[in-house]
């Protein structure tokens, strides 16, 4: 072996190691994976993640070390960086509690299907069975009024698929149908407030309405989606009740006192 060959060998080895440990950006991943996992890449391209500019490394990390799939499967992959609020909702559900207590016993080398993990992590449902369009499977929100829409019917069916790995079809159907109603009832409370505020403008009431929509209604949805009773109830419906009655109280005073200045804090 002459010096040149040895040098070439070393050079090749160093370059390979460097490339392996380098930050693999989405563009680079796609060069190979579009061919190897075409469907997966196409699904990702449609996803909200892609629209938000999140590439493969956001969930899989940048180390091409043979554990990339495994890395994106536990709760932490989604929750430690972006989805903290969703995590707190999931963590209080039975699914979240079991996932936490099972800890290292959960085998994330297995695909996210067939109840391979005893309790679902985020990805088990939202990216079930290699689905990479996060939002196509389990839909975070289905407006009840739009359920007749054909594409939404497809999605209504799609969101039930991961649940059926463990739960009976009838249970899943009932869960979602009651859940949709629970959210719709929340929307009724919001609409009641909106109608009142449209008639009697009031800055403070407007702020409460914003809280209804952005926080408390959203809590009901998270609670339904994650089977987390606290978010459905204490952080959800009774909280919406409180908002609504406070809006009504303010408007009641406007009605009673005509144009008098309101000074309730």
């Amino acid at each position: 072996m002459n010096g040149e060959t040895l040098f070439r060998g070393w050079f090749f080895l160093v370059v390979t190691l460097w490339a392996g440990s380098a930050q693999v950006m989405a563009g680079t991943c796609l060069e190979c994976h579009r061919e190897r996992d075409g469907a997966l890449v196409t699904a990702w391209e449609k996803s909200r993640h892609a629209q938000a500019g999140l590439g493969c490394e956001a969930c899989h990390g940048a180390e091409h070390d043979g554990a990339m799939a495994r890395r994106a499967r536990p709760v932490e992959a989604c929750a430690s960086t972006c989805h903290a609020r969703e995590r707190s909702s999931h963590m209080l559900s039975k699914h979240g509690v079991i996932a936490l207590l099972e800890g290292e016993r959960l085998d994330f080398s297995l695909p996210l299907k067939d109840g391979n993990q005893r309790a679902p992590s985020c990805a088990y449902c939202h990216l079930h069975d290699t689905e990479h369009d996060a939002g196509a499977g389990i839909l975070p929100l289905i407006p009840l009024a739009a359920v007749s829409n054909a594409s939404l019917t497809v999605r209504t069916e799609a969101r039930a698929v991961p649940c059926r790995d463990c739960h009976s079809p009838r249970f899943v159907e009932t869960w979602f149908s009651t859940g949709d109603k629970m959210v719709e009832i929340g929307r009724m409370k919001v609409r009641e407030a909106e109608t009142l505020i449209a008639r009697h403008e009031d800055v403070e009431a407007g702020k409460i309405l914003a809280r209804m929509k952005d926080v408390h209604l959203s809590n009901v949805r998270l609670g339904v989606g994650h089977a987390s009773p606290d978010d459905q109830w204490w952080h959800g419906h009774p909280a919406l009740d409180g908002d609504l009655l406070r809006i009504k109280s303010r408007i009641g005073e406007i009605l009673s006192q005509g144009s008098q200045t309101m000074n309730r804090p």
Binding site: R191, E192, L244, S256, Q257
Partner: peptide, 21 residues
């Protein structure tokens, strides 16, 4: 400290999407 005649608030509190439902 509030003064002035009070209005009947029944219509406000008995109406609305959720309340009516």
């Amino acid at each position: 400290g509030q003064t002035g005649a009070k209005k009947d608030l029944k219509p406000l509190w008995m109406e609305g999407d959720y309340t009516k439902f």
